[in-house]
Amino acid sequence: MPGPDLLSSQGLRLDGRRPNELRRIRCKLGVFTQPDGSAYLEQGNTKVLAAVYGPHQASKSKSSSEGVVVNCQYSMATFSTGERKNRPRGDRKSQEMSMHLRQALTAAIKTEMYPRSQIDIYVEVLQADGGAYCASVNASTLALIDAGIPLKAYVCSCSASMAYKDGVPEPLLDVGHVEEAAGGVTLTVASLPSTGSIALLELSHRLHSDYFETVLSRAMQGCRDIEIILDKAVREHLAEGWTKQDVITI
């Protein structure tokens, strides 16, 4: 049975997007000078900062001879949601998010290149409007690239949900807060679009297996779209950064 009307009879979503459209993505690399790499990313009203330190020598307890240890810390700013809440770092939700971030990013980083070292990735959500995890992954990718850490491929994340238009199921790409709150299922996927592999897949509720394929393929399509946007941003940044560096170094 159809839930709340996430799709109008004209096929538009509540915010005016079509089902297969992403929110507006704006991003910038190298926003800070202190860390080795940093990025700022907006996905609609969700705004995220990511900073990367390293690779540097790992502390003894963590160090591994196999490869680099990726250390993630996810946190939300007190002012990031409508109702202001003091959010201590390390609450359950943040810890879970940190772990998920680590899983997705470890899949992309060529870890074997830096044994006994560590990469720290700090993600701060400045404004949350749904899809904070996706934005965090995307921002972290950019920050990693900015830091010059070798990656196997871009790792991009995108969510998708289900809605019904006149009783016909239609997956929605890049779910915003309103659509998330409407109670439908949200599928979040982090993937390496150029290789087609999936780094992380999460479902918020139960989803009937009939719909799984379509929702997943829509989310994967979103990842590919995001990759194009990120790639463009990286190229633009490099183009402009190269000229600047040119001036300074030479």
């Binding site: 005016g16 507006r24 009203n45 409508g82 109702e83 409007d129 915003g176």
Partner: peptide, 20 residues
């Protein structure tokens, strides 16, 4: 207003299209 009576400011995205 929330259920508790707090006033909330809500900001929503709104996309304007040229393909309608």
């Amino acid at each position: 207003k929330t259920k508790r009576g707090n006033v909330l400011k809500i900001v929503r995205e709104h996309y304007l299209r040229d393909d309608l």
